[in-house]
């Protein structure tokens, strides 16, 4: 009667992220670039679309910015199998809580839920078969503000006051975000939706330039990064034609 869906799963014998000795040493699908920053209406979360295993490109159409409910997204970096499983557990947990308790789980409660899953996943993360380093962003209805949190593989949670990055391409853009936010024409938090989207496309293009495991824009195939916005109204995904027009007018000239 506690509204805890994960507990029900565990009682039925479900276990997340079992460490697999035989899997260690095999190339796993990992590496990525995800980012989130605050802009004038809320939070923008974006991610490239490449999934790699070692030096192999496994897939170029991955959606790493997963909508967990109407007001929250989880951007994933790390082993996709575990990350997608975590997203599924969270999605069902939040729905189950809302439907049983007849109220939304608090934003704080949602953050703890992800932290708990990461802690349960520590053996697999340390064995090298299931490390996940996500960013969780959402609209906190109590505080009337959109917020960003990032995690380490052990489940510690940190608030990204202005921005957060994760994945193999993140060192490249972390410095840029700091520079733009501190000495740029305007801080990130005052940018309009369009300016923020342009920044996200530029940042991911930079990451792809220096990190082979991050997929950039593939204009021939019509592949653009996933960009989602979180505001008081909920989560909105930016459509590819909109991203294409912004990319062509504001990003591609410099590439």
């Amino acid at each position: 009667m506690q509204g805890d869906f994960y507990q029900i799963l565990k009682e039925q014998g479900y276990a997340l992220g079992m460490p697999g000795q035989s899997g260690a040493g095999q190339p796993l699908t990992t590496a990525t670039t995800i980012l989130a920053f605050k802009y004038c209406d809320g939070v923008l979360v974006a991610g490239d679309r490449r999934a790699t295993a070692g030096n192999m490109v496994m897939y170029d159409r991955t959606d790493k910015v997963l909508e967990i409910d109407r007001h929250c997204v989880m951007a994933i970096a790390g082993v996709p199998a575990t990350a997608y499983e975590m997203a599924r557990v969270l999605e069902h947990s939040f729905k189950y809580y809302r439907r049983t308790q007849l109220q939304e789980l608090s934003f704080e409660g949602k953050l703890r839920a992800l932290s708990k899953l990461l802690k349960e996943n520590v053996p697999a993360a340390l064995a090298g078969t299931g490390a996940v380093v996500p960013i969780f962003a959402g609209y906190d209805a109590d505080q009337e503000a959109a917020k960003i949190y990032f995690y380490d593989i052990l489940g510690a949670e940190f608030e990204g006051v202005e921005y957060a990055v994760s994945g193999s391409g993140s060192p490249t853009i972390r410095g840029i975000l700091h520079y733009v936010n501190t000495w740029g024409e305007q801080p990130l938090s005052t940018m309009s939706q369009e300016q923020a989207t342009i920044q996200a496309l530029r940042l991911l293009t930079c990451a792809a330039e220096f990190d082979s495991a991050t997929g950039g824009v593939n204009r021939e195939a019509g592949l653009y990064p996933v960009v989602k916005l979180i505001t008081a109204e909920g989560v909105t995904a930016m459509a590819d034609p909109y991203l294409r027009s912004l990319f062509e007018s504001n990003v591609s000239k410099g590439v």
């Binding site: 869906f5 029900i8 799963l9 039925q12 599924r88 557990v89 069902h92 729905k95 189950y96 439907r99 049983t100």
Partner: peptide, 9 residues
């Protein structure tokens, strides 16, 4: 609720 969510998951 429990049956539906476990099945859905």
């Amino acid at each position: 609720l429990e049956m539906a969510h476990v099945e859905g998951f």
